[in-house]
Design a binder for these strands. Structure first.
Lengths: 343, 343
DNA sequence: ATGAAAGCGCTAACAT
DNA sequence: ATGTTAGCGCTTTCAT
C-alpha cells in the first residue's frame, strides 16, 4: 500500500540505488537528480521502511531505557522527566525509545528485559540506581550503556550526572550570603554518592566562608531520603541545637519533612528557620511558603544522555566521559536574611 | 555475530522453514523435530530478528502511545501509570510501546508523531484528552486506535474508560451510609465527560436514598479541576451552606484544595466536615488526615487498553466496544460518621 | 554520477 | 511432515 523505494525510483526515472543515496544524503549526487528524487518522494509520500533498513544495516534504531519500577513510580516525577528528555531528543533524530522497568530486587536469575534478549536496541540508557547484576549482564552482551544519575565504579561508559558538589555549595552559599552561620545539614542516606557529594559541597562552602564546620549541625543516616526522614532528622537536629537558623536538606522530599516538623513545632518559616532543598519538584510550589531549592534540569539530563548514546553509537567509542549537568539556585520564600530573624 | 535461522537449521539438521514453523508454534511438527530444533535454539542462544520478521510480515510489533505533554507531566502520576500498565502487558506479548507526547495545542499544521509518519507502529493508544485534529489525521491513515480515559463521539474504536457513574455513586453512598444528608458536591470542569458522570453518580445515589437533591450544594464550573479550583469551590459552597457536613470532590486534587480551605478556616477534618475524593493518588497518604477516595486502577487500565489493541490487531476488527473499568472505595480518615460530628 | 545485483533474516507458498 | 524457494524493502559493493 505504501510507496517503496522502487516506486520512487520508477517515478523519478532513476535506480533504487540512487534513491537510497539521496535519502541517506550520500556522496556526489547531481543537484538535479537529487531534486528530482526528492520531489518524487514528496509526491508519493514515501517513508523508508524501518525494518528493511534495520535488516540490512544490522541496527535497530531503538534505544532502551531501563529503570527500577519504584523509580518510575516515584510520586514526584523525576525519572519520568529524564525519560521524556530522551524522547524529546530522540524525536528529531532517528531513534525510538523503548522503556522498561525492572524490579528493584532484580536478581541474576530474573530474565533480562525482552529488548535486550531480542537485541531490539542499539544501546541502553540506565537511569538511577539499578542492581549491579543487571549492569554486568548487559555489559557482557557488549551493548553500549549510558548512565544517568547513577555512577558505578565498574563501568567505562558515558555518565550523565548532576553536579552535586556545585549544588551543595550553591545552596550553602545562598544561606551564608543571607547572613546565616549556624546552618544545619540534613543528608539522608550518606551511602548514596549523590547525596554525599552535596554534603561535600556544603562543607566546601563553609570552609571557603571561613565558617567552622560543626558536626552537631549535620544529620546523616542510612535511610531512604523521604519526607519522614526529613521530619525525624529535623527533630534530632533542632532539639539539640537551638542556635541553628537555617537548614539545607539534601532533597526536596526531606525539606518538606523538615517544614512539617517546623510547623508542628510552631517555628515560623522563614522567620525562625530558613530552609532550602534540592531537586526542584512540583510540590515545592504548593508549599507554604514555596520552597527555595536547587533546580536539577531533568529533561536536559535525559537529552544529554541520548546525545551521549548517539555519539557512542556513531563513533563506536566507549568514551568514559562524565557529563556534569549544572544546577541552578531557585530562590523562593522559604529562605530569608538572618538579620530579619525573629523580628 | 548472533545466530540466525540458518544457523539453527544447520545445527538441527532441518530446513529454515521447519525452524520458522517451530518458533511460530505452527501446525503439525513432529514432537521429535520440535524438540531437536528447540534444543538447537537454546544452544545457539537464538532469537529471531525483529526487522527480518517485520519486513516480511508487514507489521512492526510496536504500539504507539500518545498523550499531551501536560498530561505526561502531571504532578500526580496518572497517565504515566497507565503507560506503565501498557508496558507491563506488552512485556509478555510480542509488542514494544513507543511513547510520544504532543503539545496540548497540537494543531493541524503540526507534523504527526514520527512513528505514525514512518508507519513504525501497528496501532496507537491515545490516553486522555487530545486535540481532535490528531485523531482525525490518524484515522485517515487507517491506523487502529484505542482510547484510554477519553471519549469522543466521532470514533468507532475500543474505549477503556473509568466507570465514573459507579464511582460517583460509591462515593456518595459512603457518605450517606455514614449518616450524612447534606452532602456538598465539587465538580470542577463540568464540560469534562468523566467529571460530569461523577456528578450523575452523585445524583443517582441521592435519589436512591431518597435524599432531595439541593442545587445549592453543588459547585460546578468550567475551570481546570486542580487544587485551587477545589479551594475556591469549597469557599463558595461552605460560606453559603452552613448545614453541609460532608463534601464529595470530583478528584483528589480538588479534594486536597478543599482540605486546605477547611484548615485555613479552622474546620476540623473529619469531625466538622467529612471529605472524599476521586482517583487515589499518592499524595492522599501524605495528607493529614489521609484522604478517603475512590481508587482508579491506572495500571490495569493501561493493560486493558493494550489487550484491546492486540485483540483489534489480531481479529482485524474495529469493535466499537466500551470497556468500563470498575473503581473501588478506599476508606481512610477524612470521612467519619455524622453522628460523631462536633462531638 | 548512476545503475545492476547480491544479500540482510525471515515467512509463506508450493513441492515433495 | 518437512524442504525449496521467492520475495519483503533496503543498502552497498562493483560496474559502467
Amino acid at each position: 500500500l505504501n510507496a517503496t523505494i522502487k516506486d520512487v525510483a520508477k517515478h523519478a526515472n532513476v535506480s533504487t540505488a540512487t534513491v537510497s543515496l539521496v535519502i541517506n544524503n550520500h556522496a556526489r549526487i547531481t543537484p538535479e537528480t537529487k531534486r528530482k528524487v526528492l520531489k518524487s518522494i514528496k509526491i508519493l509520500n514515501y517513508y523508508p521502511s524501518r525494518s528493511a533498513r534495520d535488516l540490512v544495516s544490522k541496527k535497530t534504531g531503538n534505544i532502551g531505557f531501563i529503570l527500577t519500577d519504584d523509580h518510575f513510580l516515584r510520586t514526584e516525577p523525576f525519572y519520568t522527566r529524564i525519560f521524556l528528555g530522551t524522547e524529546f531528543e530522540a524525536r528529531d533524530g532517528e531513534y525510538y525509545i523503548l522503556l522498561t522497568t525492572i524490579d528493584s530486587n532484580f536478581s541474576s536469575t530474573d530474565p533480562l528485559p525482552r529488548f535486550v534478549l531480542e537485541r531490539s536496541v542499539d544501546g541502553i540508557i540506565i537511569a538511577g540506581k539499578v542492581p549491579q547484576n543487571l549492569i554486568d549482564r548487559i555489559s557482557e552482551l557488549k551493548i553500549p550503556i549510558v548512565f544517568v544519575d547513577y555512577e558505578t565504579n565498574s563501568n567505562c561508559c558515558p555518565l550523565v550526572l548532576i553536579d552535586n558538589i556545585q549544588g551543595g555549595t550553591m545552596a550553602t552559599n545562598h544561606l551564608i550570603e543571607l547572613g546565616h552561620k549556624n546552618i544545619g545539614f540534613i543528608g539522608g542516606d550518606s551511602q548514596h554518592p549523590s547525596l554525599y557529594d552535596r554534603f561535600n559541597g556544603y562543607k566546601q562552602a563553609l570552609e571557603k566562608a571561613a565558617i567552622p564546620f560543626n558536626n552537631n549541625f549535620v544529620e546523616n543516616n542510612s535511610k531512604y531520603p523521604d519526607r519522614q526522614n526529613g521530619y525525624e532528622s529535623a527533630e534530632k537536629l533542632l532539639e539539640n541545637n537551638e542556635e541553628i537558623t537555617s537548614v539545607f536538606a539534601c532533597n526536596d522530599a526531606m525539606a518538606i519533612g523538615v517544614m512539617h516538623y517546623l510547623k508542628d513545632n510552631a517555628y515560623k518559616i522563614p522567620e525562625d528557620i530558613s530552609i532550602i532543598g534540592f531537586d526542584d519538584v512540583e510540590a515545592d510550589l504548593m508549599l507554604d511558603p514555596p520552597l527555595t531549592t536547587i533546580r536539577v534540569p531533568k529533561i536536559e539530563m535525559g537529552a544529554e544522555a541520548l546525545r551521549a548514546m548517539i555519539n557512542c553509537l556513531k563513533t563506536n567509542s566507549n568514551s568514559n566521559n562524565k557529563i556534569l549537568v549544572p544546577v541552578e539556585l531557585i530562590v523562593r520564600n522559604s529562605t530569608i536574611n538572618n538579620k530579619d530573624k525573629k523580628s
